[in-house]
């Protein structure tokens, strides 16, 4: 069986009280099933996101560095992150700390674990990267109990998973999620808008400008025949839900298309409990109707 120890940074959104708590819980359930031993970073804090950086850049890096230091203290330098904004913040912190000598001195003074000869350099990973490149097809397929054959899944990456660094996939046309979907039997839809901006935080301050943008993305997915839209970002997810509510009356098809986190979909194919995944019975029944029932013909288990 696959065994690996990593630390986990939930961030505000994916934590137990955040709006994306089921992104968090479904990811943990999936990782547990695969055999990854996940330890939450103790007493973690805000990643020092772009909103904080807009006010105080140096302090934002110090906030990020505290989380990295906690992971090092736990002896688990490989850090898994779900939220793309947190992922980018901590990755950026890491880059800045090791290229800006004044910052490095300040960070070392606060957190002696940095630059300590015995401790390693933190390795910040997004969960998609980890699942595709470390877990891989073989281990993945061993855990699939219910193939989602024929389900037309539309992946929506949003912006900051691959930009600006493009660390593990193409910055404009990534395909990592599609690879995962093919392992669980689903049919990924190729959308030209999959990394188009969802407007991010601007939905709070500039709704008039960004809503038409998100509506366009949703409508494009409907035209392409999506049966399920899948995200990997708490903010993309929320913005798509907001746009869905706004166009529900005029675009009838949209009410039948659930918007889910990609780990919820994986969890479904791993046959994990609905309450851990945070998906309702109605969604599951709806998706089941779309899935070509070949799994039962093979006796429930695939491969």
């Amino acid at each position: 069986m696959f065994k690996k120890n990593v630390s986990y940074y939930p961030g505000c959104s994916c934590s137990k009280s955040g709006l994306a708590r089921y992104y968090g819980s479904s990811s943990l359930a999936v990782l547990k099933k695969i055999g990854v031993n996940v330890s939450e970073i103790e007493d973690w804090n805000c990643c020092g996101s772009n909103l904080y950086r807009t006010i105080d850049e140096n302090k934002a890096y110090l906030l990020g560095a505290r989380n990295l230091a906690k992971a090092l203290e736990m002896g688990l330098p490989e850090i898994l992150i779900l939220c793309p904004a947190c992922f980018l913040s901590l990755k950026r912190t890491l880059t800045e700390v090791f290229t800006n000598s004044t910052l490095l001195i300040e960070v070392k003074k606060k957190y002696s674990v940095f630059g300590n000869r015995t401790s390693s350099i933190p390795n910040v990973r997004h969960i998609i990267d980890f699942l595709v490149n470390d877990i891989g097809e073989d281990v993945f397929k061993k855990n699939v109990e219910k193939k989602l054959d024929g389900l037309k899944v539309a992946p929506y990456y949003g912006c900051q998973i691959t930009r600006p660094y493009g660390l593990f996939d193409d910055p404009e046309f990534p395909t990592s999620m599609e690879r995962i979907f093919s392992w669980i039997g689903a049919n990924p839809i190729d959308s030209p808008l999959k990394t188009k901006c969802c407007g991010g935080m601007l939905t709070i301050t500039n709704e008039g400008e960004v809503l038409p943008m998100i509506k366009k993305i949703l409508e494009s997915y409907i035209r392409l025949g999506a049966e399920c839209i899948v995200t990997a970002c708490p903010l993309c997810h929320l913005n798509l839900e907001i746009a869905k509510m706004k166009i529900k009356r005029t675009v009838k098809e949209i009410s039948n298309i659930p918007i889910m986190y990609f780990t919820q979909l994986i969890g479904l194919s791993f046959n994990l409990p609905f309450n851990e995944l945070g998906i309702t019975k109605e969604i599951v029944e709806h998706l089941n109707k779309k899935i070509i029932v070949t799994a039962s013909l093979r006796g429930g288990k695939n491969e």
């Binding site: 505000c12 959104s13 934590s15 009280s17 955040g18 709006l19 804090n45 805000c46 996101s49 909103l51 904080y52 807009t54 006010i55 105080d56 906030l63 935080m201 601007l202 709070i204 301050t205 500039n206 929320l238």
Partner: peptide, 23 residues
């Protein structure tokens, strides 16, 4: 500007709690 106020609200929350809640 609303966005400027949003950033300040965000920073205040982080400085007070160390984290934020979207709600």
């Amino acid at each position: 500007l609303p966005y400027s106020k949003l950033t300040k609200t965000y920073v205040d929350l982080v400085n007070k709690y160390g984290r934020i809640s979207e709600t």
